[in-house]
Design a protein around this nucleic acid. Structure first.
Length: 432
DNA sequence: ATAGGGTTAG
C-alpha cells in the first residue's frame, strides 16, 4: 500500500478521487488494525491533489471505531470544526461508537445534539440506536423508539430495525412477540429479508418449537427470501442440539446442492466469454437443473431468456416446472411462467390439465355450463377480447381450431383458456 | 463502495 501511495503521489497527471481514500485506503488500514496509518492517510489527502470533505472525515471516524480507538475517536470528533461540517453519517458513527461502549445515555446525547444542529436523523440513525438499546437490554425503550420514529420523525422503520428488535425480544424468549413484529412488517409492507427469518428460526429452536421451523422456511421462500449460509447455520445448529443428525445432514446436502447450482449458473453465464454461445441444449439443461433445485425465480429468468432467443423447453421440463410451482404454492410466479409459455403456445394438454385440476380445487371455478357461457360471452365482448381476433380482424368462432392463444387470469381469478384448438378446450372443460 | 441487522464454532 505504501509503495502504491508513493507512486500515486509522484504521478502528477493522476488526481485520485476522494472515494478511493475512503473506501479503499482508510478502511483497509482500519481492517489491518493500523489506526495511525488511517489517520495519516486522512491528513495527507490534500497532498494528492484531492479535495477532502466530510466523507473522508466520517470514514476516519469509523476507522477509529473499527480499531476500537475510542479515545482517539473522541479527540478527532471534538476537533471536527477544523476538518468538516458534520452530517447525519458523522453522528451515526458516533452513536454507534457510544452504543458499542455501552454508553447508551451518551448515544442519546449525540442524537439530541444532531437535532439541535438541524441535522435530520435517517433510517441508519434509528437502526443504530435501536440496536444499541436492544444490545443493552433496553427493549421497551427500543420498541418505543421504533414507534416514535414514524410518529415524530416521519422515518419509516426498515428491516434492520425490525431485526434488531426481534433479536432482542427473542433473547428474553418472547418468541410470540417477535412473531407479532414479523406480522407487523408484512402488514406495513416492510421489505422482508432472510435476516428476519434466520433470527426467528434460531429463536424457535432455542425455545423448543422446532415444529414451526419448516413452516417458517416455507413462508420465507414464499416471501421471496432465499435461505443463505446464516439461515442454514441456524438450522443445522438447532438440529444438532437436538441430536437429529440425519436431518442436519439433509439440510447440509440441500445447501451444497444450492452451491453447485450457483456454480452451474456461473459457468453458463461465462460461456460467451469462453467463446461458446449457449445453445438450446445449454438452456434446457440449466432450466431443468434450476427446477429440480427449486430455484424457481432463476428458472423464470432463464425461461424468458431462452424463449426470447426462440428456444423452447422440452415438454417434460415444462410439466416438471409447472408442477413444482403448483406444489410449492408459487402462485404469482406460476401465472408469469404460464403467460410466457402460452405466449409461444408451447404448453401441452397434460400441463394444462394439471394446472386446471389443481387450481379448480382451490379457487372454486365455475361449473362447466357457466364456464361455456362465460366463454361465449367473451366471444361477444369485443372490448377486451382483442386476443380472440385473428390477423384479419375477424372474430373467431367458438371452439375454433385456429391456433390462437388466449390466456386470461383476471376474471374470477381463474380462466385458463387455451385456444390452441378444440381438443384442448374439450379437455379443459372435461377436467373441470 | 462514508454510517445500522441476522448464526454458529474453533
Amino acid at each position: 500500500m505504501e509503495t502504491v501511495l508513493h507512486r500515486l503521489k509522484q504521478e502528477t497527471h493522476i488526481a485520485p478521487k476522494e472515494i478511493i481514500f475512503c473506501n479503499v485506503i482508510i478502511t483497509y488500514y482500519a481492517r489491518a488494525r493500523l489506526p495511525d496509518k488511517a489517520l495519516q492517510t486522512f491528513h495527507r489527502i490534500p497532498s494528492f491533489r484531492c479535495r477532502r470533505t466530510v466523507k473522508s472525515f466520517n470514514t476516519l471516524l469509523n476507522a477509529l471505531l473499527i480499531c476500537k480507538e475510542f479515545e482517539k475517536l473522541k479527540e478527532v470528533f471534538f476537533d471536527m470544526e477544523n476538518y468538516a461540517c458534520p452530517d447525519a453519517c458523522t453522528y451515526n458513527v458516533m452513536i454507534n461508537a457510544c452504543c458499542l461502549c455501552g454508553d447508551v445515555g451518551y448515544a442519546r446525547k449525540m442524537f439530541d445534539e444532531m437535532l439541535i444542529k438541524g441535522i435530520q436523523p435517517n433510517g441508519v440513525t434509528f437502526g443504530t440506536l435501536v440496536n444499541g438499546l436492544c444490545a443493552n437490554s433496553m427493549l421497551e425503550e427500543a420498541c418505543r423508539l421504533k414507534d416514535d420514529m414514524v410518529r415524530v420523525y416521519h422515518v419509516k422503520p426498515d428491516g434492520f430495525i425490525y431485526v434488531s428488535l426481534i433479536k432482542g425480544i427473542c433473547r428474553v424468549n418472547e418468541v410470540n412477540l417477535a412473531l407479532k413484529l414479523k406480522e407487523e412488517m408484512l402488514e406495513s409492507k416492510v421489505e422482508m429479508d432472510s435476516g428476519v427469518y434466520s433470527t426467528l428460526i434460531s429463536a424457535l429452536f432455542k425455545v423448543g418449537r422446532r415444529g414451526e421451523v419448516s413452516g417458517m422456511l416455507e413462508e420465507m421462500k414464499r416471501n421471496g427470501c432465499k435461505p443463505n449460509t446464516i439461515t442454514y447455520n441456524a438450522i443445522i445448529f438447532g438440529l444438532c442440539n437436538e441430536k437429529d443428525f440425519d436431518s442436519a445432514f439433509d439440510v447440509l446436502n440441500e445447501m451444497e446442492g444450492g452451491r453447485k447450482l450457483r456454480e452451474a449458473n456461473d459457468l453458463f453465464e461465462d460461456m460467451p466469454r469462453r467463446r461458446c454461445a449457449p445453445d438450446v441444449v445449454s438452456y434446457r439443461t440449466l432450466l431443468d437443473g434450476l427446477c429440480d433445485g427449486m430455484q424457481f425465480k432463476e428458472a423464470a429468468l432463464i425461461l424468458d431468456e431462452m424463449l426470447f432467443k426462440g428456444y423452447v423447453p422440452r415438454a417434460v421440463s415444462i410439466n416438471n416446472y409447472v408442477s413444482g410451482l403448483l406444489r410449492e404454492g408459487e402462485t404469482s410466479l406460476l401465472w408469469t411462467v404460464l403467460d410466457s409459455l402460452a405466449g409461444v403456445n408451447c404448453i401441452d394438454i397434460d400441463t394444462w390439465r394439471m394446472v386446471v385440476s389443481m387450481v379448480s380445487d382451490k379457487d372454486k371455478l365455475p361449473k362447466p355450463c357457466e364456464f361455456v357461457d362465460a366463454l361465449l360471452m367473451e366471444q361477444n365482448d369485443a372490448d377486451h377480447n382483442h386476443k380472440l381476433y385473428n390477423n384479419d380482424e375477424k372474430l373467431l368462432p367458438p371452439f375454433s381450431a385456429v391456433p390462437v392463444v388466449s390466456w386470461r387470469k383476471d376474471f374470477q381469478k381463474m380462466y385458463i383458456f387455451n385456444f390452441a384448438g378444440k381438443r384442448t378446450l374439450t379437455c379443459l372443460i372435461a377436467t373441470i
